[in-house]
Design a protein around this nucleic acid. Structure first.
Lengths: 243, 243
DNA sequence: CTGTAATCTTTATGA
DNA sequence: TCATAAAGATTACAG
């Protein structure tokens, strides 16, 4: 066996993990640092996020999980999620449906393309980390097989993401708007230029302007978002007889 | 909800799995076939190998595992390994060292690039298969990251929230921007009017414009967000003397 | 993530 | 044309 030492970087908050490695100083040494996007760094390309069962589940609900893992994926070519102690207790004691948990797990593993490795406990986690470090740093025999190209959030996605901040809008409509107007600024301008049509009795009837050709956008959307984006609009009392 | 049926192909030897899906005929239908390189086929690119704990371990020892998984990977672009019931009993009752088991697992997941999904039992496995089929066959690709804002938000909070969609910005900076410019549209305009100053050697040095009086916003922020908000900016070579 | 409720847009219908 | 109802799509929310 090689007598070369393994080196990893561990986030400073992972006290329990560090304790384990303190006992294996002759094999693996670590540096404790404040890491923002991972719990353990093994090499330039390999970074590990460790999640315990309960935290995994609760982070699904508030979207923390996907934010974290997406950042991990954008930063490191080989992101790894160690899923620690996802056991019966977790499945039964969180209000979450089992299908939701497995849906998220499937999404992370096969759709996001992050390597998921289940472990039973912290000790096992330490073993996994050591094995991975060993492969990365010493037994450098096999290049890893091509996996799906790490698709980072595209400019288009990022623009849609901004638009999703508006009211009554989700992924679908946001995407449609960016598709048509290209940039968030153009979307804002389009919303500004769109006006609400009223009946003679002053009930909102529909819209006219850049957004009228898209479906899914009506007077309610325009009204709410004009107010947010530009402040109060002057009263739209003028009759519309033109064209 | 969508009433489209899911279709999968199951290897004819997977009797127990088929029994589970017999109970969900209204959601998912399967065809039973002799499959040589996978246990379940979900689409042209997605195929699933299911391995129970003990079989997983013993297949490590006689090299069956890597043979199978390599063929799986060569044949399907998205190979998935469902690891069923890899529990304490398995770890303790096979002669294999724990580190060896985790070594193999790590190898499969991160080196071979196969999506590993752990489940507790056959029932969970069926759930995972159904979720994957659903994503593959019905749910159109969703944006990697979407955000949800509570419907009830003050106008000011809502405006900040929109601004938080920008790059390199959090609640603090977003609030500061809205505080100064009042509306998201005005913030966009301010970002547009802010220019990046360069040194003689064309290195970015600082900014000039509406944002220069605020703290925390530098040339990097301006550059990234101008591109997202307005598309590529033409060369900012002109001097600005106005206001 | 999933599943359901609430909301908005759009189409249909009658006054 | 307007007003209302029903149908369809999408978003909001709870677990």
């Amino acid at each position: 066996m090689s007598n070369k030492l393994l080196h990893i970087i561990i986030d400073h908050r992972e006290h329990k993990l560090k304790e384990f490695f303190d006992q294996r100083k002759d094999i693996i040494q670590y540096e404790s640092k404040q890491l923002d996007i991972a719990d353990v760094i093994v090499s330039n390309t390999v970074a590990i996020e460790r999640k315990e069962g309960f935290d995994f589940v609760s982070s699904i609900m508030d979207n923390r999980l996907f934010e974290q893992l997406l950042r991990l994926k954008e930063t490191y070519a080989n992101p790894i999620l160690i899923l620690e102690g996802l056991n019966d207790e977790v499945f039964e004691n969180t209000g979450m449906k089992i299908s939701s948990i497995y849906g998220a797990l499937s999404f992370v593993s096969y759709k996001l393309g992050i390597s998921v490795i289940p472990t039973r406990n912290l000790e096992d986690t330490a073993i996994v980390i050591e094995r991975i470090a060993y492969r990365e740093q010493i037994k450098d025999d096999m290049p890893l097989l091509s996996r799906r190209a790490p698709k980072e959030m595209s400019k288009k996605d990022r623009r849609s993401f901004i638009i999703e901040g508006l009211i009554d809008i989700g992924p679908k409509k946001a995407k449609a708007l960016i598709e048509k107007f290209k940039t968030p600024h153009n979307v804002f301008k389009a919303i500004k230029k769109t006006e609400i049509l009223y009946t003679r009795t002053n009930n909102p009837k529909g819209i006219r302007g850049p957004l009228e050709t898209l479906k899914g956008f009506g007077w309610s959307f325009i009204k709410k978002n004009q107010e947010i984006l530009f402040g109060h609009k002057k009263n739209p009392q003028k009759k519309i007889n033109e064209i």
